[in-house]
Design a binder for these strands. Structure first.
Lengths: 335, 335
DNA sequence: CCTCATGTGCTCAATTTGAGTATAAGTGTG
DNA sequence: CACACTTATACTCAAATTGAGCACATGAGG
């Protein structure tokens, strides 16, 4: 019996996609690879026996294959190639989701193996240049400009997205559909005074995708949308994976102390706040944020003083590693 | 180039494990298959070219292979075999986690393919007998007796587990290790007045596993532990998958209205409360629970009356399906 | 009619949250 | 050096939420 790879059942390869996040100058950045057909071939070594369609020369998430004989676990497989290729030590790693849709990788299909991708979120502090060719740190709001509310509602929402959504709602075939679309747009995009919820990143992206308002969903006939307006597209379904990661991280920081994985060893409370704000894309009330952090006891004063604040010098704090185990239940819940 | 199934890289098969949950008579039940070597062979059709070790004739989670040529998505693959085999319509399905550890399936190894399992949580209401041979609904507290706090702290905790944990803590090699173990036991098992957290199901199981306090982790030399005391073991790593599912579901009901997937079309508020209690393994304050539910507006009075309550008749309610989209942010947060 | 069991409305204090005022302690400027 | 400007930090206060409980309603069964 032909176990597993039985041709009649189709073949499967497992890929590991990493969303590697760091904060650089108060911006939430992800490591992306600028693909040309050549670098793609080099990267996807085992996968690219076929050329990529022209369309897919987009920025991509770093990707590595999973070798069942070499890697004891999925996570160790991920860690090994990421650390090897980026020279970064990755502290926190979390499995996000496994993506197995047919057609998610255009190179599959007739004869090609099905590519099932396990997405991971990794948090790093160290942002030295990586050894990955063509890899750069890119703000994640580059891909999701409507997610950054740190300076109030993003202009692109008011000016472009919401009108387009209203048109999409109005273009419904039936009344039911219209109501459903309206409802959905309200929840995800905060139409008509519905509150904005920072965690619905994936839900928003999927709505835009279905409504044909992002470039990935263009059919190739209509002319592509202006890129800087609806965010930069990514290769394959990578923007979806990134949306999953952002949503997950935004949710997680509210109840687990994962922010500290992105912080330097010591930091001021305002620096911490800026990082939380960068991730969640919102603004926080400074005094209340400070009260919250102190109450949780996640942090302790080092006694040292930071004086490059531009104002009164601030105490430097350190994350109390002890509490990583202690009270799993606490993060930096804001709003 | 031998794509994907390249022998030098090892082969991979993808399996789909389902934790199918229903509430029957106020107990949270999961569908398990009582494996004999024969049924196992039938079930794991593509996988069992090798006999299972004797040890693994345990209860197992229903399992189905993923056929990349037949199934467009992982989820549809799961849905199709579950619905076909159980005759149950499954409403809610959620991907849990992808398990790819080497050695998680003893049938891999020399020459065998690596079995990567994608675990899913499915919620059903309908509990008619299934068409799966040897499948039965089993209370999940059968496998995790220490997780049921509905009648106060479970006796097994005080009498057996906590003493065993203290012994494990005391048996540490170094002072650091002792402190770490103590800390961890406090958080997960609520030692010494640390509060019990219902969501840490997996963390508790893993601690017991590492401390050699559950049967799966027995080395085969020492005599097996009394089963009814530390919960019934399951095949392979299925108890871990189940723990993941319970923890996830307990967390989820607090912020998403997923409980209703387990409810009949109409129900009284007490019935709803009992279901939440069954899932979370805790007791809730009746009046406050009612206040919470009403405030959220998740539910509407049908006008009908249930009089089989044993006391004053109760109003029957219905879940407002509309809110499934509406405010994603709300569940039945208790405690 | 009385008891028992549950359903349902309401109270009340403790705590948490959201928003703001006030003051401290640095930097750079005229 | 007085002054504006910036950030840090302490404290206040009202509104909202939560945890616990009392009281009464409404059925069944003796």
């Amino acid at each position: 019996m032909n176990v597993g790879g039985a041709p009649e059942n189709g073949q499967v390869v497992i890929g590991l996609n990493a969303v590697i996040v760091a904060i650089i100058e108060e911006q939430p950045k992800v490591l992306v690879v600028q693909h040309t057909p050549e670098t793609l071939t080099a990267q996807h070594e085992t996968l690219t026996d076929r050329a990529l369609p022209h369309d897919d020369r987009h920025e991509a998430l770093p990707f590595g294959p999973f070798y069942p004989l070499k890697h004891r676990t999925l996570e160790s497989g991920l860690r090994s190639w990421v650390e090897e290729q980026t020279n970064h030590e990755i502290g926190y790693v979390e499995q996000l989701y496994t993506f197995g849709n047919a057609g998610r990788d255009p190179r599959e299909g007739a004869g090609g193996p099905r590519v099932v991708s396990v997405g991971y979120l990794a948090l790093v502090q160290d942002t030295r240049p990586t050894a990955i060719e063509n890899a750069v740190w890119q703000s994640w709001y580059h891909y999701f400009p409507w997610e950054d509310w740190r300076d109030g509602p993003p202009r692109i929402l008011e000016k472009d997205i919401i009108p387009a959504l209203r048109k999409w709602i109005a273009g419904s075939a039936t009344r039911e559909q219209r109501e459903e679309r309206y409802e959905r747009a309200c929840i995800t995009f905060g139409l008509d005074d519905t509150p904005w919820s920072d965690e619905l990143v994936l839900e928003r992206y999927e709505l835009l995708y279905e409504a044909n308002l992002v470039n990935e969903s263009q059919d190739g006939k209509s002319k592509p949308l202006p890129v800087d307006c609806r965010g930069t597209p990514m290769a394959l379904d990578h923007r979806r994976i990134l949306a999953t990661a952002i949503g997950r991280l935004r949710g997680k920081i509210k109840y687990r102390p994962v922010v500290f994985e992105l912080m330097p060893p010591t930091f001021t409370l305002l620096q911490l706040q800026r990082v939380v704000e960068a991730l969640s894309g919102t603004q926080l009330h400074k005094q209340n944020f400070r009260r919250l952090i102190e109450k949780k006891g996640l942090v302790e004063d080092t006694g040292k003083i930071e004086s490059q604040t531009g104002g009164r010098p601030a105490s430097q704090f350190r994350f109390r590693r002890e509490v990583l185990m202690e009270r799993q239940a606490l993060g930096v819940r804001h709003n």
